[in-house]
Amino acid sequence: MAGRTGRPRGFDRDAALERAMLLFWERGYETVSIRDLTEAMGITAPSLYAAFTDKRTLFEEAVEAYAHRYGGYIEEAVEAGSTARLAVRRLLEQAAVQHTLPDRPPGCLILNGAADRTPASEAVAANLRARRARTAALIEARIRADVACGALPPETDAHALATFSAGVWQGLSRLARDGHGRQDLESVVATAMRAWPPSGGE
């Protein structure tokens, strides 16, 4: 007997996910209710549960969509620079642009999506922390490679410098959320890069 196909959903899943992502991006995980989501996505609660299982699963899928559509600059910047210093400068400069684009919510979903968390949303916050930690680890690996090849002084504390750089990256998002524009963020980037030790060949 031929298998039966399910009834069509009746809505564009990708478009609905995009609207959910924008809502989470603007307001964060904790403050967004199912009712908020159904209104933003233009679907009913049963349709939401049928398509996305629950709020947490929807959020995690929204974060993954965000990472692919808007967060691609992160790994690209860290891996593209010829030195760690250039890579981090590119990361921070790109963040200053991305966090302040006029057609999107300010800041970054990965950095601010679970800023206001409760014990019930700790797993969501932990997932975002893990993503941020991966970025810091990529930066640290680039710094260690530069120390090993002599592009950075041998006394460079790779972990401390990577933590500092990741902290600036995260801080740019918070500044954007607080209403600071691109020029302010770029000034922060320039100041932060002056704290780096000199790199050979730059």
Rank of each mutant, 00 (worst) to 15 (best):
S121A: 14
R117M: 07
A126H: 10
L111H: 02
R104Q: 10
G113R: 03
N112C: 15
A126F: 05
L111T: 04
L109Q: 13
T118D: 12
A133N: 08
A130N: 05
A133P: 01
Q94Y: 05
A115N: 09
R134G: 12
T118W: 04
L91R: 00
R134A: 12
D116K: 14
L128F: 05
A136I: 02
A125E: 07
A120H: 14
R104N: 05
A130H: 07
L138N: 02
G113N: 06
P106E: 07
V124K: 04
S121T: 15
A136K: 05
T118C: 11
I110H: 00
V97I: 14
L92I: 02
L91S: 00
A95V: 06
L128N: 01
I139G: 00
P119Q: 08
G107N: 08
A137H: 03
A115H: 08
L91H: 00
H99E: 10
A114D: 11
P102S: 09
A126E: 14
L111N: 01
G107S: 12
L101K: 14
T118E: 13
D103A: 14
C108M: 06
H99F: 15
L109I: 09
L111P: 00
A120F: 15
T100G: 14
P119N: 08
R134W: 03
R117S: 12
L101G: 10
R117L: 09
A96M: 09
R131C: 04
S121P: 04
H99A: 14
A96L: 08
N112P: 07
G107P: 03
N127H: 14
A95D: 04
L92T: 01
A96Y: 04
P102V: 08
A120T: 12
P119L: 10
V124R: 03
A115W: 04
V97A: 11
S121H: 07
E122F: 14
P119D: 07
A115L: 12
D116Y: 13
N127A: 15
L91I: 00
L138G: 03
A137Q: 09
T135R: 02
Q98Y: 03
L101H: 09
N127R: 15
C108W: 00
I110W: 00
R131L: 11
L109N: 13
P119Y: 05
D103P: 10
G113H: 03
I110Y: 00
E93L: 06
R129V: 13
